Amino acid sequence: MTNATPTAQLSEAGVSIWLDDLSRGRLSSGGLQRLIDEKNVVGVTTNPSIFQAAITSGTDYDRKIAELASQGTGAEETIFEITTADVADACDLFAPIAAATKGIDGRVSIEVDPRLAWDTAGTIAEAKRLYKEVDKENVHIKIPATLEGLAAITAVLAEGISVNVTLIFSLTRYRAVINAFQTGLELAKDNGHDLAGIHSVASFFVSRVDTEIDKRLEKIGTEQAAALKGKAGLANARLAYQIYEEEFTTERWKLLADAGALPQRPLWASTGVKDPSLPDTLYVTGLVAPGVVNTMPEKTLEATFDHAEVTGDTIAGTYEEAHGVLTALEDLGISYDEVVSVLESEGLDKFVASWSELLADVEAALADARNVPAH
């Protein structure tokens, strides 16, 4: 690698760095532009928890909330207006990167209402509404990879809308996501859309796998269990990359690629390290490969920029070892299928809870602005 900064080295190795955060303050202060200029950030992802934190801390949104309160706007519509405005402005900020990369990077993601995660028709309608409101070519609509979400992913892509598939934990589900993506592109082609203009990433969550499995390993308490701590997250993600390599070299994919389609890139999400005994850049330096995205919370981005050791591709040649980790966990009685099911359920519950808190906080703020009690 060169003597460039670690984030520049990551970019050279084929990793797109996206920030896992967005707020009005980041946009208005120039802070987000600085991360683009100085730390190789080429995209942004959001989720309900991020917006809940942004809107309920500080005063950046007070004026807009007061304005909407005076118009009699309800809490849900207020959140819709605030979040889509932030995303649209971020899309404008990243537009030069989107133009330079032909839409591969420079993307900004906004998630459908998490309460719709089990509602296929509701998700499709909300995705179209978000896409229309943001009205930027470099927006990604985030749809959770629930069983009900798979059909929605296909339907939204078929409309020519770019999709970020989120909350993927399971390798089996990941194959289903890729199938949903390719089916969506086949339908988009039939519908007359230019496949080169449809972009997608598949967000594979990493650190939460270790959090759940390491908790179980600690309960087992043996030397064999201790030796597996902090290894499952990387193993799971590396095996996902193996699936990516397999599924995007098939005859089915070749037909789509010949028609102008671009692969659905793997995106490493939840890359902030939760266990202080593990290196704070573990899920960055351990998941370097061509054609991936790593979406980092700012703390992880700063750690990466400061001291990450980027040594090139750290996924190639690891598949046998990764399979061995998952096999060893099963041998200890830790069910992979149960773990990923728990993680999906908990992830959705967390987003729904954040959304509910946000609704309550915005309703209170609107009521305060109108000087009437919140219900």
Rank of each mutant, 00 (worst) to 15 (best):
K102P: 00
G312F: 12
Y61G: 07
I143L: 15
A303V: 01
I97H: 07
G317R: 02
I82K: 07
T281C: 09
L366R: 03
K39A: 11
D368V: 01
L234C: 11
G333D: 08
G286Q: 08
V340T: 14
P266H: 08
R370P: 08
A365W: 00
T222W: 06
L256G: 11
A85E: 15
P276I: 12
A66Y: 00
E309C: 02
V372A: 04
S203V: 07
T2K: 12
T295K: 06
V325E: 07
A66N: 10
F169S: 05
H140L: 15
G272T: 10
L358D: 03
L32F: 09
N164Q: 07
S277D: 12
V87Y: 02
A367S: 14
K274G: 10
P297R: 09
A13E: 14
L278I: 04
L282G: 04
Y336C: 13
F204S: 05
E67H: 10
V201C: 07
G291T: 03
T83R: 02
P96A: 11
A269S: 13
S70I: 03
A353S: 14
K219N: 04
E251Q: 13
T314N: 09
A95F: 03
R208P: 02
V44Y: 02
G31W: 01
L267S: 00
A226T: 13
F94C: 10
I161P: 13
D280R: 11
I104A: 14
D135R: 05
S29D: 14
I334R: 02
S341G: 07
N164K: 07
A232C: 09
V108K: 02
Y244P: 08
H375M: 09
V284N: 08
E38S: 14
G58Y: 12
I55W: 03
T271L: 09
L326W: 08
L10E: 07
A121G: 02
L255N: 06
F204G: 06
I36R: 00
L332E: 05
D337K: 12
A232S: 15
Q9F: 03
Q71L: 14
F181L: 04
D89E: 15
A176T: 11
